[in-house]
Design a protein around this nucleic acid. Structure first.
Lengths: 225, 225
DNA sequence: CGGGTGCCTAAGCTGATGCTCAGGTTATTT
DNA sequence: AAATAACCTGAGCATCAGCTTAGGCACCCG
């Protein structure tokens, strides 16, 4: 199944994270987890999730603080944020929504409820992320015409190269793990070595002539602008 | 249900886009959305919709500007444009119609009204849509006379060749996948090999004498100008 | 009945493409 | 600074996708 979207779960209670993570993964989402407020911020910036589940009570930074910080960060204007509140405390809920959260769920959390809320948001976002022309600075990536344009000049990319570039550029700044890249570009069934990715990255780099793909050693690659 | 046509909705208010999009999709239209003026231009060029719903007040470019730009763009002479005006401001309406809009609807928009207007235009276009003369540079493709003209010179194409060329030229620049071509030219029931497409492409190329069809390896073909 | 035309397939050819490997380079760790 | 891990590079090679040619079948028309 194609991944439906990327979700980040941030909570300091490991068993809650685990159970939610498990259920969301079963629904077909790409799930990342964070165990405190600072971790959540890091992971959010690294993976650019479409949706974030934030517990309010977390070490170092509360969910509300994380939420407010993110809303002031470029690239997170459209990220959906769902708050988890330990008590059905009205005041806290309001505070959460004021801070820019899109929804809140009270603990104890039923996995079913959380999953259905998440599904609802993705449904609402709908087909928004279908074949979309990506425009970043002087680069244009057009999956309909299968064309990459750099400074008005057309650049021919091979199929795999194009798919790889499109994936990275679809979430600029987000780090894609090597096995994420493998499963999204090559599919889960095909088995190719890790070096294969390097080689394709290199071809893209030399064809584009500019260095817009950054290597994150030990992790993966990201499109940087 | 066969898609009745392609519609693009451009408005910066997400909930309006959503509600209109939902209603039009239920009617059987292929719906794409854009969230500002520039986005609308991109999407219009990418998807070549039959009809565009344009809000006037949008970031970057107003609906009126988008409309005027499109009217000056090759391939959008016949695209129906419906304007959304926030106020029933007479002046704005006139300005919109002068800019080349075909109709206007005042906000707040009733989905029912909008849908019926859209339906009306598609009904009016009716069969207009199919036999339409395509003119691209010095090539003319006339599905009524079944005739291709290149630099005033008539070129005889066989039936399949003509249909194939007509399909590609109907959305110049867009890549058609091999199975798209198969299903649209040959139909879903007939099973013919992949090589058949190559051979027909080749005949078209040599009959036309110019290279207007580009091969996208591993993907398909596109008409390029 | 032949000859012409359109459509499809088979099969060899070719260049592009995708993959792997081995050695070199860079970054990180200790 | 040495050791280690991770990545880059260049070369080589097998495969693939598309191009091309040739030929067969079906249909139409004289």
């Amino acid at each position: 199944m194609e991944p439906k979207g990327t979700v980040l779960i941030a909570d300091d209670e490991a068993d809650i994270v685990e159970i939610l993570s498990y259920n969301l993964q079963r629904e077909g989402y790409d799930v990342y987890t964070a165990k405190d407020g600072l971790d959540a911020l890091d992971k959010a910036k690294a993976f650019k999730p479409d949706l974030i589940v934030l517990d309010i009570m977390m070490p170092y930074k509360t969910g509300i603080e994380v939420c407010q910080t993110l809303r002031r960060t470029a690239g997170f204007e459209d990220t959906v944020i769902i708050m988890l509140t330990a008590l059905s405390d009205e005041g806290t809920q309001i505070q959460g929504l004021d801070g820019g959260a899109d929804d809140y769920v009270t603990k104890p959390v039923s996995p079913k409820v959380l999953v259905s809320r998440v599904n609802a948001f993705f449904r609402r976002m709908g087909k928004m992320d279908e074949p979309k022309i990506i425009r970043l600075g002087n680069i244009t990536i057009d999956p309909i015409q299968f064309l990459v344009t750099l400074n008005e000049e057309q650049i021919m990319l091979a199929k795999k190269e194009f798919e790889l570039l499109y994936l990275l550029a679809s979430k600029p700044g987000r780090v894609f793990l090597r096995n994420e890249i493998l499963s999204m570009v090559w599919g889960t069934d095909v088995i190719v070595g890790d070096r294969t990715i390097d080689v394709h990255i290199r071809k893209i780099r030399q064809k584009l002539g500019i260095d817009c793909i950054t290597t994150v050693k030990g992790v993966g690659y990201k499109f940087d602008w």
